[in-house]
């Protein structure tokens, strides 16, 4: 039982990271109708920035928040400088731009920091957290807490503030948004900023587990895609659920189904998702938006 709970908790920790990145993907998807393949590399690059800051002697949490600010600004700049010009471009153009961004971030990171694997610190204490006879990894628990806090803040922001509402409106219907006075370009820029910020959180939380290197996010991005599709690419809450679900399933399948082990656990998760999507193409929580003409 204890080991089961431990597996669940560590599944939730990685799941939270998939969930965060899945949410970032959903946000961009809402405004561009495309999956941002560069989301993972943007997160990776942000993580390198915080690594540089920490290495330069900046205390962890200051580096953490400074990175969030830098990531946000970077996201805004990418949208305003590049993405706005391909807003109405054909699908393939957008895909190429996203892949181009991915390759640029990847190679610039490799060029600045080299492809050597680096250790990235965890801000949480080393001692396992003991609850009765249950021992939990401190970084797992901390990462879950950080992701949940970030997700909760975002939820409150989008649900209850007028800026959050304007951002949702701008992503859904730019023309009507302009007609009520929303500065749509700014909102889309902020959307990219927030997505980059969430990605940065995911990067900094996962780096102590997978170590830091320019390709660290490749696998994680696939999970995030899968999680988003599973929960429903049209539903932020669904994507978050999908991410957590995937993390837990992957971990449990890896430990309890003997022939699967570590090597096949990714495949198991993906098989489950394919099956779900065959039955419900819009994902578990994906709402088929009703609109009358």
């Amino acid at each position: 039982m204890e080991s089961f709970l431990q597996q669940v908790v560590s599944g939730l920790a990685t799941g939270g990271i998939y969930a965060a990145l899945a949410l970032a993907l959903v946000m961009i998807y809402h405004s561009t109708n495309h999956l941002n393949f560069a989301q993972g590399e943007m997160a990776m690059f942000s993580t390198y920035i915080s690594w540089s800051l920490i290495n330069a002697g900046v205390p962890y949490w200051i580096a953490f928040f400074a990175t969030l600010v830098i990531a946000f600004a970077g996201g805004v700049v990418i949208e305003r400088l590049i993405i706005r010009w391909v807003e109405d471009a054909p699908v393939l153009t957008v895909v190429i731009v996203f892949i181009g961004l991915l390759m640029i971030f990847n190679s610039v990171a490799g060029w600045i920091y080299s492809y050597d694997i680096k250790v990235f610190p965890s801000p949480f204490p080393d001692q396992p957290i003991q609850i009765g006879t249950l021992y939990l990894g401190p970084h797992d628990v901390g990462a879950i807490a950080v992701t949940l806090i970030v997700l909760a803040i975002l939820f409150l922001f989008f649900r209850y503030t007028s800026l959050g509402l304007a951002m949702r409106a701008a992503a859904e219907n730019p023309e009507s948004s302009r007609l009520v006075g929303i500065r749509v370009g700014r909102m889309l820029g902020m959307g990219w900023g927030l997505a980059a910020l969430i990605g940065a959180v995911a990067g900094m939380m996962v780096a102590p587990i997978v170590f830091l290197d320019p390709n660290m996010m490749a696998g994680i991005l696939i999970y995030a895609f899968a999680g988003a599709m599973f929960g429903g690419i049209s539903s932020p809450g669904g994507a978050v659920f999908g991410g957590f679900f995937l993390g837990v399933t992957e971990n449990l399948a890896g430990s309890y189904i003997p022939f699967i082990g570590n090597e096949l656990k990714l495949s198991v998760a993906l098989v489950i998702i394919v099956v779900v999507l065959l039955v419900r193409p819009s994902g578990i929580f994906g709402k088929v938006t009703v609109s009358r003409v």
Partner: peptide
């Protein structure tokens, strides 16, 4: 009031109205 009504279809009625007063 645009042609085709320009409804924010995924938002609630109340949110549509709040957006009207956005500025």
């Amino acid at each position: 009031v645009p042609e085709g009504r320009g409804t924010f279809v995924a938002l609630t009625v109340e949110e549509n109205l709040r957006l009207g007063a956005y500025t």
